[in-house]
Write a protein that binds this DNA or RNA. Structure first.
Lengths: 231, 231
DNA sequence: CCCCTCCCTTGACCTGGGTCAAGGCGCCGG
DNA sequence: CCGGCGCCTTGACCCAGGTCAAGGGAGGGG
């Protein structure tokens, strides 16, 4: 991890682009900007560790990070993947204590570090910010509930199907944005199992895999498989 | 589910007792009180269903509820168990849409129902409330992260050990506050497996079970087993 | 007092998926 | 051109824990 001073105007532009800070005036943005530190990370670098004392949180400006937990045997479970504009490591801001998970960059990342007090100070004057944060935490909660549901109640194939359908977003072809090892960790399994499931779905004619490109041959069947019977 | 009018002063007292509404003046409490509906539930009644459109949330005054998700085969995963003073079903207040999980009473329950708009309206004047809500959501997030960690990375015995140690809270004897079937669902397993694990730990001399009473004979070993190597 | 029901326990069995080991293949440096 | 290294795939094996079926025992109603 190395520090890097970003120009103030650059920070302001970055803040303005994040949904969380939408609706703040330029002078507010400038104030936050002054109290933040810009940081850059190379791929695979650590932003923070689960259990580490937290004094602030990150706002991702560019690139993507994963939040994960590791078992005693070293196995990894990815909890979230976050991209530009999203806050990261914000839980301890409101509840104190330590980061609940470990954060690692998946790509080169540029981020702002906001000290807890700076954010809370501004939030006192702009409660708007708190509502934005509540919406974000709510989304995270919802995502985690889905993850628990998947892990506890579904097998790997349905989880994979749901994940692919989401990623595709209606299209019938998609490019995996993360390595298969990371995808496996996201799904709560290991690369070997992911490989096998992909091979099986391919054999059954539901999809076609070519490197990181996946073509969904039978989206309806995938939707059925994923257990998403709502639409 | 049946409605029941609570007296206004009773509502105010109840609200004042909840951490979320700490620090509000009596006139604020009265205002919230007027816009809420009191409700009572018998044991095992449904408060709301996952996927159901939400227009407000509950504040538990008395009793306990569980939040859970159900698999297509009917298996249940308990996400949270909530007691008096805690809000329940609050996620859609900030993000719109539907309840993420199903809520069922574990005991007779008395609760207040707060319409979304009533809460948001008061929060606009008392941003304090938003901070309280953020703290609560943060705690929920942390709990869910722990649950994911358990489900994905640990076996049943460590999960059980951690759960028992928490419940005991330092003491070496405890009374299970929920049925073993519910405990199993909490741990992400089924009653049969829970039975077997309890029997094994008993055989190994780590604890003693007598109905709902559990005596922790070797808390140190249990702590080791739970993977809680921090203290 | 008996039976029925609910909840828990135990045993026998089976399977999803994790572990271990062995390649295959693309890419990079020498 | 070749060896080494990541990353992925495949196969053989194994085990935690889920399923199915059969009691056991405490409490409650008839």
């Amino acid at each position: 991890m190395r520090s890097q001073a970003f120009r103030d105007e650059e920070k302001v532009k970055a803040l303005a682009g994040s949904p969380l800070f939408q609706g703040l005036g330029p002078e507010d943005l400038a104030a936050v900007g002054r109290s933040t530190a810009g940081r850059s990370f190379r791929t695979g670098e650590l932003l923070f560790l689960a259990g580490q004392e937290a004094r602030g949180f990150f706002l991702i400006l560019e690139g993507r990070v994963k939040l994960s937990r590791f078992g005693s045997d070293g196995r990894e479970q990815v909890l979230h993947i976050l991209g530009a504009g999203e806050p990261c490591g914000e839980v301890p801001v409101f509840e104190g204590g330590v980061y609940p998970a470990t954060c690692t960059s998946l790509t080169p990342v540029r981020a702002l570090y906001l000290p807890r007090e700076a954010f809370l100070g501004l939030a006192r004057q702009r409660p708007q910010l708190l509502l934005g944060m509540l919406a974000i935490l709510s989304r995270r909660l919802r995502a985690l509930v889905e993850l628990v549901d998947d892990l506890a109640l579904k097998e790997v194939a349905p989880r994979l199907a749901r994940c692919l359908l989401e990623e595709a977003g209606g299209r019938d072809i998609l490019e995996l944005s993360i390595s298969k090892a990371n995808l496996a960790a996201r799904l709560g399994t290991i690369p070997e199992t992911l490989s096998r499931v992909l091979a099986r779905l391919q054999r059954e004619g539901l999809l076609e895999v070519e490197g990181r490109t996946v073509r969904l041959l039978d989206p309806a069947a995938l939707r059925r498989l994923s257990g998403n019977d709502s639409p």
